[in-house]
Simulated assay, not measured.
Amino acid sequence: MHDLTGFQRDILYVIAKLNKPHGLEIKDELQEHYDQNIRHGRLYPNLDTLVEARLIEKGKKDDRSNEYKLRNRGKRELKSRLKWELSCLPEDLIAELDDVAIKQTAE
């Protein structure tokens, strides 16, 4: 996972969030986060790289669209990355994040 770009890691998180999304669903979700237009020429080569790295699986959704799914390796890599990120944060900040997560769950 350390050799992925931030954009590629964000793609993994989006695929984990959505249920077998197609490319445009991934693009729309990323655009909300990035607050900018994500071009096809940026998205699809990065999806292909993640497929080649065996982090995601690509299948046919219909005649025009592919769908993407996290592979077990992709899940393990996300978990490992998240654990590392959390280990870098001070406990008071983690506590604040827990408060935010609890509030969002309650809403």
Rank of each mutant, 00 (worst) to 15 (best):
C88A: 02
P90F: 04
L70F: 15
N46L: 13
E52Y: 02
N37G: 08
T49G: 05
L89H: 06
R64W: 12
E107P: 03
W84H: 01
Y44N: 13
R73Y: 06
V100R: 10
K17C: 01
Q8S: 07
S87Q: 01
L55H: 02
D92K: 14
R54K: 09
P45I: 04
H40Y: 13
E107D: 07
V14D: 06
N37T: 15
V14R: 03
Y34P: 01
L18M: 02
D28A: 02
R71N: 05
G6Q: 13
E107R: 07
D28G: 00
D28K: 04
S80V: 15
D35L: 15
A106T: 08
R39Y: 14
D99I: 04
L50N: 00
M1I: 11
S65F: 14
I94E: 03
E85R: 10
R39E: 06
I11E: 04
H40N: 11
N72E: 14
E96Q: 15
K69Y: 11
L4Y: 05
K60T: 15
N72V: 15
R54M: 07
L70K: 10
K20Q: 12
D28I: 06
H22A: 00
Q36E: 10
G6M: 11
L89W: 07
I56P: 04
S87M: 03
D28H: 02
L24C: 05
V51M: 02
R73M: 09
I56C: 03
D98I: 15
K83M: 14
K79R: 14
R42F: 00
L70A: 08
D10Q: 15
Q36W: 09
E91R: 11
M1A: 11
Y34E: 05
S80F: 11
L70W: 15
L50E: 02
L18K: 00
I38T: 08
W84D: 01
K61C: 04
E85K: 11
G41W: 11
E57D: 06
S65V: 04
N19L: 12
R76F: 12
D10H: 09
E77I: 14
D3Q: 08
K75S: 06
F7I: 14
L24F: 13
L43V: 09
Q8Y: 08
E25I: 12
L89Q: 10
Y13S: 07
Y44F: 14
H40K: 12
K75P: 07
D35W: 15
D35I: 14
Q8D: 08
G74H: 04
L97N: 05
D99Q: 02
E32Q: 03
E96C: 10
R76E: 12
A95K: 15
N46W: 09
P45K: 00
G6W: 10
N19R: 12
K27F: 04
D10E: 12
K58T: 08
S80N: 13
R42Y: 00
Q31L: 08
S65P: 06
C88G: 01
R71A: 07
Y44I: 08
N66E: 10
Q104N: 14
A106K: 11
D48S: 03
K60L: 07
G74L: 07
H40V: 12
R42P: 01
R39A: 13
K61Y: 08
K61Q: 09
H33K: 13
L18W: 02
A95Q: 14
L43C: 09
L30G: 03
Q36F: 10
H40Q: 14
N37K: 14
L86P: 05
L30Y: 01
L89E: 05
